[in-house]
């Protein structure tokens, strides 16, 4: 699925605009809330009207989403959608809120044997941030939350919407990838589970098909692993990262037994750097190894210039911050930081 990226549009971009009025869909009154109609929107709001539906079962949701029209979409926290709507990049006809779908879409569940988390897609960032279980077993997630957005956004943004958005600048997808998490995806045809990195197909592009929704994420608890996320910003401190670097490793003394290295933001989707991983796997960390790992990393990713830095500069930053992230790993446990440049 491809989503229009919220890049800057040229002035007065001519795009076909859809004009939708409210249509009352015949789903039993008790199961369906129509939240906002044209009357509400007339109150000085800049958005064209559309329908926002709140089904109470997955079945209803699938039926409501059963459309080829890209203007029919699921609605998680709405933080990404609303930005695109205000910028007129996305003009919805129907938004299907997943808010009232109970059970599997909500909650942070730690398996009884503490081997894995099952997290519902509608879990908000704030719920993640304040969960004692997450803090105890996936501290890098807790820490990443503090580098991310602001309290108001974290209170509503959901991990499902975050994954489905496909924006390569987002901070959580590389972290989930480094943690070896899997996404649960459901449609009326059934459920499938894929590794997080397989969700991303390109710049604002995911492998989700029409009618599919993300129901949650499964994250293994790996007691011997330690993780680090570096959000590297180059202009104002709070900015989209020029590069996001998530590293997760298992040590045997000073030796790296196993490692996952994921780059985001500087590339079109969160990408594992397997060449760098191969250099680091089995090695003890020193400057020579890190330098070889950086060489491998630079050889396997394509970085382009953008507003956050020239390609050359960002390549240099990758070299520096890969080294720093790996060095920061073992002794201090999990960490996520905003690294200016």
């Amino acid at each position: 699925m491809k989503i229009a990226p919220p890049t800057v549009r040229p002035p007065a971009l001519c795009m076909k605009r859809r004009w939708a009025s409210l249509t009352l869909t015949a789903w039993g009154v008790c199961s369906l809330h129509i939240v906002r109609g044209p009357r509400a929107s007339a109150k000085g709001c800049d958005l064209a009207s559309f329908e926002l539906l709140e089904p109470r079962s997955l079945g209803e949701a699938f039926a409501l989403l059963d459309s080829d029209d890209p203007a029919v979409r699921p609605f998680g926290g709405g933080t990404a959608l609303m930005l695109m709507m205000k910028a007129q990049i996305f003009k919805p006809v129907r938004l299907v809120s997943l808010r009232l779908l109970g059970g599997p879409l909500h909650g942070i569940e730690l398996a009884a044997d503490k081997s894995a988390f099952r997290i519902g897609a509608m879990t908000t960032f704030a719920e993640l941030e304040h969960s004692p279980d997450i803090r105890a077993h996936l501290p890098v997630v807790t820490q990443t939350m503090l580098t991310l957005a602001n309290v108001r956004v974290r209170n509503v943004a959901t991990i499902g919407g975050n994954l489905a958005h496909g924006d390569p600048h987002l901070d959580l997808p590389p972290v989930w990838t480094a943690l070896d998490a899997k996404v649960r995806i459901a449609s009326k045809a059934g459920e499938r589970t894929i590794p997080v990195q397989e969700l991303f197909a390109g710049y604002y592009e995911t492998t989700l098909k029409h009618g599919e929704i993300i129901t949650g994420i499964d994250v293994p608890v790996r007691p011997k692993w330690t993780s680090h996320y570096a959000k590297v910003t180059t202009r104002a401190q709070h900015d989209w990262p020029a590069l996001g670097l998530a590293v997760s490793a298992q040590f045997d003394g000073k030796r790296i037994n196993d490692i996952r290295v994921v780059l985001s933001a500087a590339v079109d989707r969160p990408s594992r750097m397997k060449g760098a991983e191969a250099v680091l796997r089995g090695a003890e960390i020193d400057d020579a190894v890190l330098s070889r790992a950086a060489d491998a990393a630079l050889g396997e990713v394509h970085i382009e210039s953008d507003l956050r830095g020239s390609a050359d500069y960002k390549q240099h930053l990758l070299r520096v911050h890969l080294g720093r992230a790996v060095k920061a790993l073992s002794p201090r446990g999990d960490q996520a930081t905003i690294q200016r440049a």
Partner: peptide, 18 residues
């Protein structure tokens, strides 16, 4: 001649962190 960062997401005014 085209502005490439005409929004506050891409034109960065300093925040408290700066």
């Amino acid at each position: 001649g085209q502005l490439t960062n005409g929004s506050l997401a891409d034109y960065k005014i300093p925040s408290l962190l700066d």
